[in-house]
Design a protein around this nucleic acid. Structure first.
Lengths: 200, 200
DNA sequence: TGAGATATTGACCGTACGGTCTAGAACGCT
DNA sequence: AGCGTTCTAGACCGTACGGTCAATATCTCA
């Protein structure tokens, strides 16, 4: 019924996500968003409620694409054992920095920028983080080394890895030297307890 | 020579810092700042150049007070060996969350919020991080366990700890459950290599 | 083909933003 | 006391912000 929408909502949301990702909520003006989304003002307000709703929808889109991609990586048996999957995730973060992509992680950015002042976003970020933590836990369990571990230790290791991952994405965005970031990642992987004994 | 300033610049800066810390750069309006700083518009623009300058000055103030406090903790031999000092720092972060202080760390917030778009702030944040990293390195060296370590491993451990610390402050701000944050901290301290062998 | 429904467009709106400026007040110096 | 200097107060300014709306276009269905 009625005139069909001329633009693809998901594509527009991808573009809005890109703007919010780089500029944050307050830093992204309506004009920025409209230009990136390539739609007119009225269309935007027809399709979404207001700026907050666009942000939330963009975060949701990030969840279903990027975060889900990370979750899939951590659960992908084809990549290898748990450590290999975790390494793949960290190396993807490193690769982004190597190609001068310093946007960091939109979820982490939202955690600092909007979560404290917007309950809906706080809830959304919280659930995304817990899902990622769960995926880390799956990877932790997919390792010969953890067979003898207590459930508690496995959970704690998953949380440790989530925490390290967040740190890496924040450092990346802050402009931390790329080379030094490599050593952060190496140390994180070496110290999470999933490797064999170290040499020195 | 002229009428003396009626307010204390550092006190006003402390208050501005509080606003930026909670709300971020764009989220803090001039009105917010003036109300918190308890000075008139004209006085603010006489004492500082513009909003950017206030932010930078507030970040500087954060550096000289809070960050320096963390650095001092990590170098304070009275607290104990390196691990004890590092634990003290993480427990302070945990204590903040316990008393419902979810502001996180202003330096970390600035890293995400302003560092990517403002070169001066990026440089400032970078130098603060490197100073904190150096302090972590001092603490790492102040441990019997690290005597046999290579210089490289010590540096990497310092970076690992800086990274974990950043993660903790971000998770704290995002609303991550307080109890779960405890286990993140425990795992970070247990896995940084400064403890004796684990039980399981 | 006409009625109803929905989308597009961009002009338009009120407001709150960051920043300036003018009076007047409070000092040091001679 | 008079002068130069600096600070305070807050009215004022232009602008850009997020959001609305009326006119028009494009669809479905009877």
């Amino acid at each position: 019924m009625g005139r069909p929408r001329e633009f693809d909502t998901d594509k527009a949301l991808d573009r809005a996500m890109g703007v919010f990702w780089v500029k944050g909520y307050e830093g992204a003006s309506l004009q920025d968003l409209l230009k990136a989304m390539k739609i007119a003002r009225g269309s935007l307000y027809k399709a979404f409620k207001d700026k907050h709703s666009i942000y939330l929808a963009a975060l949701d889109r990030y969840d279903h694409t990027i975060v889900q991609g990370a979750v899939d990586t951590l659960r992908d048996e084809a990549i290898g054992d748990g450590l290999a999957r975790i390494r793949a995730l960290f190396e993807a973060a490193q690769a982004a920095v190597a190609r001068a992509d310093r946007r960091g992680c939109f979820m982490c950015n939202a955690a600092i920028d909007q979560a404290p002042i917007n309950p809906k976003i706080r809830a959304k970020v919280g659930s995304m983080m817990k899902r990622l933590e769960g995926a880390f836990a799956s990877a932790v369990e997919a390792s010969r080394k953890t067979a003898s571990w207590s459930a508690k230790r496995r959970v704690e290791t998953a949380r440790l890895l989530l925490n390290s991952y967040m740190g890496v994405r924040v450092l990346a965005r802050s402009g931390y030297p790329a080379d030094d970031l490599v050593s952060v990642i190496n140390a994180s992987l070496r110290n999470c307890g999933l490797e064999g004994p170290r040499s020195a």
